[in-house]
């Protein structure tokens, strides 16, 4: 599974993307956040305020309870500020 980070989430994690293989018990977005947060101090800092993080699964916005079944690309980022 490819995981992408954007904006200050990317800065805190320290990389823009990485390939990960979470264990089978990681089934949804919230589970992936908890699992990723344990990978490094940077990850922990990025995910410390989970309420400020948004996610997309396969390039569609996803809620914390969204399933990871079929997820090839998961992205984490702050609330968007375009326009």
């Amino acid at each position: 599974m490819r995981v992408l980070y954007f904006a200050w989430v990317r800065q805190k994690v320290g990389v823009a993307e990485e390939d990960v293989s979470p264990p089978p018990e990681v089934r949804d977005v919230a589970g992936l956040v908890a699992w990723l947060a344990a990978r490094s101090p940077g990850h922990a800092a990025a995910f410390a305020q989970a309420r400020q993080i948004r996610a997309a699964v396969n390039q569609e916005f996803a809620t914390p309870d969204a399933s990871l079944a079929g997820a090839e690309e998961v992205a984490f980022f702050p609330p968007v500020t375009g326009g």
Partner: peptide, 10 residues
């Protein structure tokens, strides 16, 4: 666009 397009301003 402001709330649903994935852009971030620094």
């Amino acid at each position: 666009l402001k709330t649903r397009a994935p852009f971030w301003k620094r």
